[in-house]
Design a binder for these strands. Sequence first.
DNA 1: AAAGACTGGGTAATCGATTACCCGGGTTCC
DNA 2: GGAACCCGGGTAATCGATTACCCAGTCTTT
Lengths: 338, 338
Amino acid sequence: MSVTIHDVARAAGVSVASASRALSGRRRVTPEIAERVARAAAELGYQPNAVAKALRDQTTGTIGMVVPGIGNPFFTTIVEAVERELQNFGTDLLLCSSQSSPEVEARRLETLLARRVDGLIISPCGIEASVPAVLDAARRVPLVQLDRHIEGGGADWVGVDDEAGMSQAVDHVAAGGAHSVVFVGSRLLNSSARLRLDGFERAAARAGMETRTPLLGDFTLEWGIEAGRRLLDDGPLPDAVVCGNDEIAVGLLRSLRTGGTRIPEDVSVVGFDDVGHATMCDPPLTTVRQPVEEMAAEAVRLLGQIKAGDPRPAQRIAIAPSIVVRQTSRPAAGRETT
Amino acid sequence: MSVTIHDVARAAGVSVASASRALSGRRRVTPEIAERVARAAAELGYQPNAVAKALRDQTTGTIGMVVPGIGNPFFTTIVEAVERELQNFGTDLLLCSSQSSPEVEARRLETLLARRVDGLIISPCGIEASVPAVLDAARRVPLVQLDRHIEGGGADWVGVDDEAGMSQAVDHVAAGGAHSVVFVGSRLLNSSARLRLDGFERAAARAGMETRTPLLGDFTLEWGIEAGRRLLDDGPLPDAVVCGNDEIAVGLLRSLRTGGTRIPEDVSVVGFDDVGHATMCDPPLTTVRQPVEEMAAEAVRLLGQIKAGDPRPAQRIAIAPSIVVRQTSRPAAGRETT
DNA sequence: AAAGACTGGGTAATCGATTACCCGGGTTCC
DNA sequence: GGAACCCGGGTAATCGATTACCCAGTCTTT
């Protein structure tokens, strides 16, 4: 059994109230008592019970975070960013994975709420399927959606302007001389998948580029590799491929190159996210960078502003991404017709 | 304010004791009361407060896990495996990153203990630096070390037999005809780094192979790339390179190949861990597989056996790894002298 | 010098769920 | 018919930290 404030008080020969005051410093005590309590606490190795404190204070000092999975490096970087950001507030992170399943997601939200987290940050795995669980949670505790979001405006959101990002990607390959472009992304179950495809299609139309039916699978390396093979099989390659995320782009790169395609001479490839290893694939990947630190900071800031139960209009904060040009795309200078 | 069991009891017109009994089923109540309580709970949307329950029961239903970082894919897979394993027990995981810093690690352990986790799983970031924090934590709560461990036998451990793994790696390249081999690993701050180097050196000596001074950096892709460049600069390449983990191996592969080296014709490369993308790099990586699921299951099982404060000799469970041969190493058949 | 303000101490209520303990009414058994 | 038991209900203690509230002593102020 561990040592409580009663033990400390007894050892110091004072009441629990004095012990608590001496330790928290929230009311003056005589130096004499402060000293005795401090010594007793140190000798006994007293460590306050956070559970009891949480019950009494009605606040746990934790926020819950639910992401589709930590296998995807984009989510691990955003989790790390959120964790760093929360450290400034002495708040701990309870991390859960929904394993891209709306049922698991709903269960995880339930247990986080039962544990009385002070707030929630979630990247919902489904655009429609996650609606009830997310809205229900948002009604009970401050909640912000980060990166992905549900349809409708029921809950706050911080993320990137997918439309603007896709515009940059498409305009960039167009400036590099591409006339035809194809999109390789994920099935349209979540908001990122949907908005990036939409953004791509609008941008391609605006740029007057020729497109084909998009290839939609998962946001994984495996699907990128598979999609590359399909492109090779399906006859003449497009001038450019714009991908829904970097995992797909890296996989695609790999299978196009093993198929003998030169990147970027034959085909330009652009990713999305700018995860760590985008710089380290071969050749280094041109991609649309998500300002992860800024998004995390903004999400935490917004979370702090929300007062539970306050019927305030939901905010949507879309941060502008920027393209970072590396070596999988032809530069604007080298304009050549195919 | 959220709905408590008192609200449910009042709505159902019974005492809190009856409400609690009806909901938990831990003592019989009349069907009449059971029914009324169930209806009241459903109507009010009652959800038990896990904080209050934890305080009363002296158990939180959570275990804490501390890993050096979730950027390293090996740790994300092992975290996922542990999470899956714990689900079977209705236990939640509180995940923390030590950011490879013993100070951060000690702080994280403190806050997990303050939150009264029922147990701890840790992969200590330092072999010596983590000793006090780990032993102190182990004294207060069931604790098992997973993968990495501190020196001495002060706390239980589940991991892989690094020595055996390295033997397999070295014997495999030797069987493929290699006469010289170099080790590329991490600086010797943690147990994995140290034991893998030791294992490598003993195995190389036993196999009668020529070695050079090992290259030691970090367990990262970046270091693998850098180490590859150094090998290329330092004159004639060895017949084989054995790496401390897969990240290093993948990076090394990349820079050796861009330097014009053929893999595995000129140099065999072997990794360690068998993380997901080892199959998907180019060419697919020969590596020593860690049985992550089994390790996670064993760690959870062991954790369940430990009774806090029970002075029981610490156990060390080393699971045998096995090499998985892919295409970065010459097969035993193709024996050729260089 | 008396009244009021201030200081620093202690007692006990509080947070919410569980459960030890008690009690009254109905059965059972001799 | 009366003692012993069982069953199912309620009251209140418990977990540990914080703090509202109270009180005694001291300091100010007029």
